[in-house]
């Protein structure tokens, strides 16, 4: 059997991580606070990259569930920065337009970044409304949302940077 190394090399280069250092001690997966909800454990994802399983990795739910709390890299005896690896995998998944394993989480990120691109800061009311529209979870947390609103923990009006064009320029500089 021949293993395709191109995926391994692509992820290594993009994440700046030497993924061959992993010897599968599973410390990362043991320390991960969301491992129980993942389809593949963090070290399994790494193994799948080593084996060239491009599609399975890019369409997995695990790469979206990683919060980036850095518990895994704290535990890793070989200092493999798994959160950077996950960042790179999501970037590749979006670039290649594969099926997204966790559409709601992607919608969250997307709507958040739209807010940032628009005014440089987050306007929580609009952000939450747009997230709900994008996912169809209209009534999830409606009661809690009302409570936060009543307690004055949501701002009524958005604030923004002085010159909004700067946000567009930043975005463009990254997309080149």
């Amino acid at each position: 059997m021949k293993v395709d190394h191109s995926f391994f090399e692509e992820v290594s280069a993009r994440s700046g991580q030497d993924l061959s250092r992993c010897f599968h001690c599973m410390c990362c997966s043991g320390g991960c606070p969301v491992a129980h909800g993942m389809d593949y454990l963090p070290n399994q994802i790494l193994r799948m990259i080593q084996l060239g399983m491009r599609q399975e990795v890019l369409e997995s739910r695990a790469i979206w569930l990683c919060i980036g709390c850095y518990a895994c890299v704290t535990e890793c005896p070989n200092r493999v920065h798994i959160p950077y690896m996950m960042d790179a995998l999501r970037e590749i998944a979006l670039h290649e337009q594969v099926r997204i394993g966790e559409p709601d989480i992607w919608a969250f990120h997307r709507e958040f970044l739209k807010q940032v691109g628009k005014r440089g800061r987050i306007y929580e009311l609009e952000f939450m409304a747009r997230y709900k529209l994008a996912t169809g979870n209209l009534f999830q947390d409606a009661v809690m949302g009302m409570k936060m609103f009543r307690l004055g923990r949501l701002e009524l009006l958005p604030s923004s940077v002085k010159h909004k064009e700067i946000m567009k320029k930043i975005r463009e500089a990254c997309d080149e």
Binding site: F112, L113, V161
Partner: peptide, 16 residues
Amino acid sequence: WNCCGASPAHSVNPDY
């Protein structure tokens, strides 16, 4: 100041 990008920015576009 502007938003630091929080989790979403590095999650999908580290350069951003």
